[in-house]
Amino acid sequence: MKKIQSGHRTEKLMSNTKRNERLALLFLLPSIILFAMFKYYPILSGVFVSFFDIDIVNLPGDFCGFKNYIRAFGDTRFYEAIWHNVKFFAYSIVMTFWQPIILAILVNEMRRKSKTAFRLLYFIPAVVPAIATTILWKYFFNPDYGLANYVVQLFGGQPQLWLNDENWVYFCMNFPGMVVFGGMAMVYYLAALQDVPNDLYEASMLEGASFVQRVRYVTLPGIKNIVITQFILSLTGIFGTMENILLWTGGGPAGETETILVYAYKQAINSMDYSYAITLSTIVFIVTLIITYAFQKKTQEE
């Protein structure tokens, strides 16, 4: 009798689970449809038309197989553009990636009221529209009347060309991220820090661990997952960046900041070579997909 009752209960539980799943699916359906419409449809269309010589009057044009891909892999500008993406990524890691982590750790050490105030202080710049801030920073680095040269000269330095100088341009574009932005990432890290068990801190303190040791052996391992996620987002973000670069430098000076998507954009707009532009964008998509997958797999294994 008990067996029968337990069987009924299991069946009921199963049917509840199924009903919940269906209900969840129903609620998810609108977002799935929107995602399919505005994300997967353009992506799949892009992949599809990259195999065509696009005729924009009579879409899609003539099928050309892998011609556009073969062209891309034999194009020196394509590799230069990828190299510029890699440089961007390297600069952003060195200049901007670590700063929100340190900020979050420091803010987390504060008392509750100060913590809220600092969190707000660092977060506000993150919600200011990027266009407005970029224009302001461009003024800052203007070699004719920008504040940057004034400050440099104040300390006895030589005025620089900043954004017009191949050696400085990446530094300038990442500088705002280093000194002002990063508030959004800091909030993520701060949230992750709340999940690090207090027992571990208490135990480490009892063992006589210093602040640096606590960070090294408790805090950082505790927020490792979010650090990896942010790392992947930075990486994919760098490959997907275009408007920001167009606004800062237009790809200059002398093509130094022409990343892969800026190159694709110029192919589409200046040369009307839509097939090639879409192929380049598709390659970017595939590369970021592979990188993301590889990182996720590695993280899961660990």
Binding site: A254, G255, K266, S271
Partner: peptide, 15 residues
């Protein structure tokens, strides 16, 4: 395409 490509050496010469 010519205009896009020549901008690079011209900017190098200028700068």
């Amino acid at each position: 395409d010519l205009k896009t490509l020549i901008a690079e050496p011209l900017q190098k010469i200028m700068l």
